[in-house]
Amino acid sequence: MALNAMKHSLAELKPGEHAALIEIHAGKGALGRMSSLGFTPGVDVEMIQNYGHGPLIVSVRGTRIALGRHEAEKLLVQRAAA
């Protein structure tokens, strides 16, 4: 998948970084689950914990959510003004 210079995968964010969610690539069931948890286009996502391997923790709409790295890689984000 060709990534636009502006788009990154959520998994690339470092702890403390904020980004706006742009695209969610997930199966239909996962899409429904993730959107009800607050992952909708445009929402602000903050990386809470990311050690570069294994699962990571983000904060979305005031809730901490653990994501598998594989799931996080399928969420495309745009970093907040650097």
Partner: peptide, 10 residues
């Protein structure tokens, strides 16, 4: 493989 998405409660 299955998606891992889980709330971390306070």
């Amino acid at each position: 493989r299955t998606a891992f998405v889980m709330e971390m409660p306070l």
